[in-house]
Design a protein around this nucleic acid. Structure first.
Lengths: 228, 228
DNA sequence: TTCACTTTTAATAATATTTTTGACGTTAAC
DNA sequence: GTTAACGTCAAAAATATTATTAAAAGTGAA
């Protein structure tokens, strides 16, 4: 979960950054309205936290601008301006929540969670994602990641890994793989499956501490967490 | 817009009722948790405002119960309990917002509007400007910019890029592109999509350091930030 | 109609992927 | 321990896919 923090007070910014990191979020900092706007429009954050009083462009205008292109972006205003008029101005600009400084970090976290939960529920997630350990395959976008790192696969590699992810922790024999991934029922006499397993290992396991693809000698291959 | 108010303090309940009616909402009142629950589950309100301290069933349990069957129902907690722990308990129960008494009616109204707007926005998408990285497309003026530099596209180029901007970071197959951009369901046997991708690359990527259009051999094309 | 521009087609060059091969390392049964 | 069978992996060969042109065909405004 990535969060953009737009805040010119360094002390507050760093406090927020640390707090969010502790909760497992990935915060990015911007110190003025213009660079905040640029970051907000050019990247896909899950949430934006902005101060109102900022150099170059204030949080109200910034919020309106972001709303034009990203009407669903969750935005929290976090500011010292605490009158009801200030709050109404913030909400009218398109803020989803408004918190007055000084605030308690725990309350901010609760409000962030409430906002993100709502979005997770409302967006119709029809994308199919296959998961195993820190390996992730999105069948809709055709993207594969391990530990949040993009991995590019060729079509055959993709299809093989897809089959393994559909059958995790199960030993898949060569003939079964040939059947399901290559649609071929006869042995061509070559070891093309071994070669492809090797390609996958290079891309998926080589750079990582714990391996996911294991050989069961005489039987086939398994996608599995630990060696056994 | 119908709103359910669950509040046992008659004075507050009537104040809310009057205030909401003035703003054009149609409020319904419940004076204890059990009847509030019954109303909430049997009717389709647009929003629920509930106190925490209530006869028969408290607002926390009530909120959890409603969430089980109506995960997207906007719920605001409005209560005298103002510690951070109270707020966190409220949000954890599934509240979308939490306001401490005494409150200003105008702030409550602003928060109600923010909550309802967000729901309205999440259903109908009326974005005028499409963004990805430093690429920007204005559907209204038909202007395309990269890094603030104007780019002129032909109608087909524009439609293709629009489709890619609507599906960033997703591999789009040729047949899908043919479907959505050319409205053709059959393979003409020619490589017109490749030609158009090439046109787009010339205008959008050629002069820039980091490329945005990438080929996934055997799969299709992606609009994406870094190479992978 | 002509002109300027856009779209489509098609041929060829450039890349990428898939398959085969074979040398070498491991493993497990005897 | 020896020795087949099995597994690994780099590289070559065979295919398949994609990029780049240029030219032909279509389109709409003056």
């Amino acid at each position: 979960m990535t969060i953009l923090i737009i805040e010119d007070d360094l002390r507050v910014a760093e406090l927020l950054q640390r707090g969010l990191e502790e909760q497992g979020f990935k915060p990015t900092l911007a110190y003025d309205g213009v660079s905040g706007k640029k970051l907000a429009l050019q990247n896909d954050y899950d949430l934006i936290i902005t101060d109102i009083i900022l150099p170059k462009m204030d949080g109200i205008d910034l919020c309106k601008l972001i709303r034009q292109t990203k009407p669903n972006m969750p935005i929290i205003m976090l500011t010292a301006l605490g009158t009801t008029d200030d709050k109404i101005e913030g909400f009218d600009a398109g803020a989803d929540d408004y918190l007055v400084k000084p605030f308690e970090m725990r309350e901010l976290m609760a409000r962030i969670r409430a906002l993100l939960n709502r979005r997770a529920n409302s967006t119709n997630n029809s994308t199919v994602i296959l998961n195993y350990d820190d390996l992730e395959m999105n069948l809709h976008t055709k993207m594969v990641k391990r530990n949040d790192q993009d991995i590019s696969l060729t079509p055959k590699e993709f299809k093989l890994l897809e089959y393994m992810l559909q059958n995790p922790e199960r030993v898949l024999s060569r003939s079964e793989i040939a059947d399901k991934v290559w649609d071929t029922h006869f042995d061509t006499g070559t070891n093309f499956i071994d070669v492809y397993i090797n390609y996958l290992r290079k891309k998926i396991d080589r750079e990582f501490e714990h391996k996911l693809i294991h050989t069961k000698s005489g039987m086939g291959f398994v996608l599995k967490r630990e060696d056994s």
